[in-house]
Amino acid sequence: MNSLKSHITLILALISIMLSIFLFRIFSGILYKYQQNITDNYSIVIVSSSKIKSLPLKEIKKIEPIDINNEIKKLKQKYKNIDFSNIKMPYFYKLRLNILPSPDELSSIQKKLKSFSFVKKIMTKSNSQTKIYNLLMLLKIVTKTFMILIAVLGFLLILKQLEVWKLLHNERMYIMELFGAPFWFRGAALFKIAFLDSIIALIFTFVIVYFIINSALYINIINELNIDFKVDFIKEFFILILVSFLISFISSILVIIGKK
């Protein structure tokens, strides 16, 4: 019973740590994709008195001219008494940015643009996507804090488990040491337990992860955000197996070294 208890404690601790790492990575991945999506769709429109090929601003990724011929055609039809051929039309451009600017960054970009004499008008948008993004950023901070808390609790559980392991394995390891057993031999039983518990914890974690990824809530969120986000299960598997093995083997080594 005690042995089962000691297994469950380590397995639970490993699951909580692995899940918090996995969820944090997924959440960060979704946010990154969403941010990219908004950034790609975000632009500043400027009206210029002359043609622009490039601007010396590091924030600008691309300058796209806006075709206003259709608009002029419409105007011509509406105002037939005006001779448009005598009017010099300004040039309209969409500026695509490298980043999704914060309000401060946006005002800085505007200021820089205004410093060019040929720029006559600047139109920016603070759309609903930015608000959602800010909300998600807030959620990211809350989730990060929450997951760090879970991971810390997991580590505390493992530390508690180390004490139990010390009591359980101390005598055997001491006797082995008296007969000249090397480090790996004394720790063999612990390493076996750690390996087994890591595998069990990994299986449980992946079952939970599978249900999360295939849940209606998760699928809806991804659809609502309109992003193309897929979990790389092989990569996540290797990251989690590495974390799991590292934690349990370091724990085993601490028990062997810390033997009284």
Partner: peptide, 9 residues
């Protein structure tokens, strides 16, 4: 450890 492997205790 090496010494102990040659001893019986």
């Amino acid at each position: 450890s090496l010494l102990r492997r040659h001893l019986g205790i």
